[in-house]
Amino acid sequence: MYGWIWRHLPGNTWIRALISLLLVLVVVYVLFQYVFPWAEPLLPFNDVTVNN
């Protein structure tokens, strides 16, 4: 998959590396802003019970 993306990016190696970095940053931004907040109520990480 990464090879396919790399081959389809325009420019030389430095431009491709810059575009790849920007793509990674966009994916991380989308995950933190939209996907993780949507999925948080569905995950059981906040269901903490303490027994006496």
Score class of each variant (00 low, 15 high):
33 Q>I: 02
51 N>W: 09
35 V>S: 02
12 N>Q: 13
46 N>I: 00
13 T>K: 04
23 L>G: 15
9 L>Q: 01
47 D>Q: 15
42 L>N: 11
25 L>D: 08
4 W>H: 00
47 D>R: 14
51 N>Q: 09
27 V>P: 00
12 N>H: 12
38 W>M: 11
34 Y>S: 10
10 P>L: 07
50 V>A: 14
27 V>Q: 08
47 D>C: 07
24 V>H: 08
3 G>L: 02
18 L>I: 08
4 W>N: 00
42 L>I: 02
38 W>K: 11
46 N>Q: 11
45 F>E: 03
51 N>P: 01
13 T>Q: 07
9 L>M: 06
2 Y>V: 01
3 G>D: 12
52 N>V: 06
26 V>M: 08
32 F>C: 08
22 L>E: 04
37 P>V: 04
17 A>G: 06
31 L>H: 10
48 V>M: 06
22 L>Q: 09
45 F>V: 05
44 P>T: 02
29 Y>K: 06
46 N>E: 08
14 W>S: 14
50 V>W: 10
52 N>D: 10
50 V>L: 15
48 V>F: 10
38 W>S: 09
39 A>V: 05
11 G>Y: 06
51 N>F: 10
3 G>T: 01
44 P>M: 01
23 L>F: 10
4 W>A: 00
33 Q>K: 14
19 I>P: 00
2 Y>P: 00
15 I>Q: 15
3 G>M: 03
33 Q>S: 14
44 P>W: 02
29 Y>I: 03
30 V>S: 11
32 F>E: 10
43 L>S: 09
5 I>D: 01
34 Y>H: 14
38 W>D: 04
39 A>Y: 04
34 Y>E: 04
25 L>Q: 13
48 V>N: 10
14 W>L: 12
20 S>L: 09
18 L>Y: 11
16 R>K: 15
22 L>V: 07
10 P>S: 13
5 I>N: 01
42 L>Y: 15
22 L>Y: 07
31 L>Y: 13
24 V>K: 08
15 I>M: 14
45 F>M: 06
13 T>S: 11
12 N>F: 09
11 G>I: 02
6 W>A: 05
21 L>V: 08
26 V>S: 12
47 D>F: 09
27 V>F: 10
40 E>H: 12
18 L>E: 09
24 V>G: 14
1 M>P: 01
26 V>I: 11
21 L>C: 13
32 F>K: 09
40 E>D: 13
37 P>Q: 05
10 P>Y: 03
20 S>A: 15
50 V>G: 10
7 R>M: 05
2 Y>I: 05
15 I>Y: 08
40 E>N: 14
49 T>K: 11
25 L>S: 12
14 W>I: 03
20 S>V: 00
42 L>G: 14
3 G>K: 05
52 N>A: 13
42 L>H: 15
46 N>P: 01
35 V>I: 14
19 I>E: 05
6 W>R: 02
4 W>D: 00
50 V>T: 09
8 H>A: 04
40 E>W: 13
2 Y>Q: 07
18 L>A: 15
30 V>W: 10
28 V>E: 13
11 G>R: 03
4 W>V: 00
51 N>D: 08
7 R>S: 14
6 W>Y: 12
21 L>K: 12
38 W>H: 13
